[in-house]
Simulated scan of single mutants.
Amino acid sequence: MEKTLTDFSGFWQRKETQVHLSSWIQSALEEDAATRDLTAALLKNGNESSRARAVIIAKAPGVLCGVEAVVQTLKALDPHLVIRHCAEDGSHVSVGEKVFEADSQAHLLLAGERTALNICGHLSGISTATAEMVSQAGSVSILDTRKTMPGIRRFQKHAVLVGGGVNHRFDLADFPMFKENHRALIQQERPELKQKPDAEMSWIRQRLLEEGYTGTIAIEVEDEASMRACLNEGIEIILVDNIPPAQLSEWLGRAKKDGLPVDASRLEASGGIDQGSLEEHASSGVGRISVGAITHSSPILDLSMSVEAISGNDLRSRRESGSPAAEAAGDTE
């Protein structure tokens, strides 16, 4: 198992992450009626069932993200869960490779199975899709968007980082982004700015300064004149939306010829970009590509959990070995 990325700033250890993860897991377990599983009675002997071992393997190659969510899901059902193997975020797995292994009561492992796999499979799918796009894009940065599922944005954006991507703004308060609707409303309110993109960009910056804002500004453009106006005004992020790569390349070529300050790191292609069109966009002259599909449409990474009873001989062998895992398993019987 190769792990190419090692530092994600302690994401899973952050207090806010733990609070939101606990809320996500509890909501999912309640939705699945995990504590009212009608099969549990057949597996129990009294209040407990036999000890069992859960093993999760990858059924497709990919980049893992969210195995910690598997741990916390199963711990929510069994605080005495004995973890035997747990892969880290950023690990590249192949088909059949073990991702996670733990011991608990059989009925509790089965109760948490679907929630654990749903969360980890979803986040790993985002990481895997991101990694594939990052590989295709070369030196061009791949960014996510705010097209995320309500309530789990922080986890989806973490998965993008794990896959080697870059997070765009987290929310509306990070920095102002003026998109098509914003610009249309401004022009309706101030007709003198219509058909005058240079004046419009200057007005936007000036009004923000009057409001006390001096940070990054992002503006979406869909025509060459607006792009040139943003270059002239020094707009920090210029989103060129829904423009064919060849056409964008021509725009940038003319801008350079005319001596405009063209900086690829400020130019971002967006709008329906997928793996099929990514390489063309990456060669158009931009330094950034934002892809909403990473978080809203990435297929899951297929993971599978097997649950098997632990034999008495296995339990005795582990106790005799004196390992912490063996003793912990014995304590919970």
Rank of each mutant, 00 (worst) to 15 (best):
S124M: 01
G125A: 04
I126D: 02
I126R: 00
I126E: 00
A129P: 03
T130Y: 03
T130C: 04
T130F: 01
A131P: 03
M133Q: 11
S135F: 02
A137C: 03
G138K: 02
G138D: 10
V140E: 01
V140Y: 00
S141A: 12
I142S: 02
L143C: 05
L143H: 02
D144Y: 03
D144N: 07
T145V: 12
R146E: 03
R146V: 01
K147R: 02
T148N: 01
M149F: 06
I152S: 03
K157G: 05
H158T: 06
V160F: 00
L161E: 15
G163K: 05
G165T: 10
G165K: 03
V166T: 13
V166P: 03
N167K: 09
D174A: 07
F175Y: 05
F175E: 04
F175S: 04
P176T: 14
M177E: 14
F178M: 06
N181Q: 09
N181S: 11
N181W: 00
A184H: 07
I186N: 08
P191G: 15
P191T: 13
E192W: 07
L193I: 15
L193M: 14
K194I: 12
Q195G: 10
K196T: 13
A199G: 15
A199K: 15
A199H: 14
A199Q: 15
A199I: 15
M201V: 14
M201G: 10
R205H: 08
L208D: 10
L208Y: 07
E211A: 13
G212F: 13
Y213H: 09
Y213P: 13
T214K: 14
T214G: 15
T214D: 15
E220P: 04
E222R: 10
D223K: 07
A225D: 15
